[in-house]
Design a protein around this nucleic acid. Structure first.
Lengths: 155, 155
DNA sequence: TATTGTTATACTCTATAACTATA
DNA sequence: TATAGTTATAGAGTATAACAATA
């Protein structure tokens, strides 16, 4: 999924103390670390991300997943198409509302998802390695509060 | 740059205590907040991001910017093409190495960049509004350490 | 030989508009 | 009427391969 790409060696730029830039930098660096670990899982970044969300919220409707990923339902439908073609997810008809599909991880994809979760856990661990236990807890707690704040109704 | 898009109302999914998922959620939510504020600046998310980096690191070479954004030099060249076509950046020949272009914000783009910086500052502020001063400092400090850890040589 | 950047080409990602089926 | 999802179409984003110019 990335080859010549990995040759690029570059750091984050500034020592900016803006939350937005810090989060963007950390996001990008964690993505890079994960990509290096997951090298050759055979999924694009966007589909990897979607698969994580399906795993975290099994049985979601496509519209809901679109909301989680912040893309339109059209885009999400296309992504599900690609994952379904690779037999990684299944569309399950909802008997209660026949317009709706519930999205599930396909059983054949379970080992892949397990591996992905293990790798992302390693990335998190690596990122936190410099912080003492108490500071880690404080960091995760603060991020959870930021997330709540930003979620609809978190005002 | 987003219209029907903004109708989608959806929260982050789980209460996962994994750093990677937390960062991904916060990133997405901050992006959404920024998009709502910058509604109609006339730039795509990717180009907005690039413009921020050019502003933070003026005079960069394309290869360096590609490293910062974690894309290939080809991709970056294309993005610079689009920004240059809109007169937002300039390619300046480097007299010391005639293969190189130095990328600068075009003077006509300064007001736009100033507005963007003001808006992203608002997003950061909004995100941190629930945290007392000391916890904010702790959060930013911890994120800086995580960033250093993940940067090449941060091992 | 290695590096900076470009052109050619192709696939993924994403959106708007228009549609079908269902509620 | 409103909602869930799709098809048609198009443009942005991204990559690999092959190349030019320069170091």
């Amino acid at each position: 999924m990335s080859t010549a790409h990995d040759r690029i060696r570059a750091a984050a730029p500034t020592s900016d103390r803006s939350l937005a830039f810090l989060i963007a930098d950390v996001m990008r660096l964690m993505r890079r670390d994960f990509r290096a670990r997951s090298h050759g899982l055979g999924l694009t970044p966007a589909l990897t991300r979607l698969l994580f969300y399906v795993d975290r919220q099994p049985g979601c409707r496509q519209t809901e997943l679109a909301g989680f990923l912040d893309v339109t339902p059209v885009t999400l439908g296309r992504m599900i198409d690609r994952l379904e073609r690779q037999s990684l997810v299944r569309r399950v008809a909802d008997p209660a509302d026949r317009r709706v599909f519930r999205i599930h991880i396909a059983s054949a994809a379970r080992p892949l998802v397990a591996r992905m979760n293990a790798l992302v856990a390693k990335t998190s661990e690596h990122a936190l390695a410099d912080l003492p236990r108490a500071e880690r807890e404080a960091l995760l707690g603060a991020l959870e509060r930021v997330r709540s704040r930003l979620m609809p109704g978190g005002e």
